[in-house]
């Protein structure tokens, strides 16, 4: 159980049985009046943003969230299937829940799946993921200058710009936080 004075940015609490994270927090107190704890909260399942003002005396249930190491298996009809690496249990996330992470989901990739009360609600990727280039135009030497880039497609269907020397079939490392090319993998 949390008290109003425990509230701070980043704290996760339950409201109407949904997990919320406090994304903005402000303490205020008018004159000789009571302490007010103004929060902007994000629903961790729906991403809906709420504004709430709490007072001292209010109490909160912590949102108990758990991350499990899981392996990405396959996508089917807008659902993404993951398997727990310890007990082989399978679970699904919707395309909305996976979001841009689908650009980096290669077969058998190990990710962290976020659970709220046994329900999968989100995904955390490793910071760096290696992928295979599936489509790239050949590098025409001479008609490019240093700093040039060209568009390519990788095995997940993700399209990005990379240095011109990257070719089809190459393995490259992507930064999943920025979506950008990092380096070519030397096999």
């Amino acid at each position: 159980m949390y008290n109003a004075s425990d509230l701070r940015k980043g704290l996760k609490i339950q409201i109407d049985n949904d997990p919320y994270v406090i994304i903005e927090f402000q303490f205020s107190k008018p004159g000789k009046g009571q302490s007010l704890y103004r929060c902007k909260l994000r629903n961790m399942i729906t991403d809906v943003i709420l504004d709430r003002t709490y007072r001292s005396g209010d109490t909160f249930q912590p949102a108990v969230l758990e991350e499990r190491k899981m392996q990405y298996l396959y996508e089917q009809e807008n659902e993404f299937c993951f398997m727990d690496v310890e007990n082989y249990e399978q679970t699904f996330l919707t395309a909305d829940q996976v979001g841009d992470a689908k650009n980096f989901l290669t077969d058998n990739l190990e990710v962290e799946i976020l659970f709220f009360e046994d329900k999968a609600i989100g995904i955390t990727l490793p910071n760096f993921v290696d992928v295979t280039v599936t489509k790239a135009d050949p590098w025409a030497k001479g008609d490019s200058v240093a700093g040039d880039t060209k568009p390519i497609t990788v095995e997940t269907g993700y399209l990005l710009r990379v240095p011109p020397f990257v070719g089809e079939g190459d393995r490259i490392t992507l930064d999943t936080r920025t979506g950008e090319y990092v380096t070519r993998v030397k096999e």
């Binding site: 004075s5 402000q26 303490f27």
Partner: peptide, 8 residues
């Protein structure tokens, strides 16, 4: 006690 914010 407990008063901490942008103005406290």
């Amino acid at each position: 006690q407990g008063e901490r914010g942008n103005l406290h």
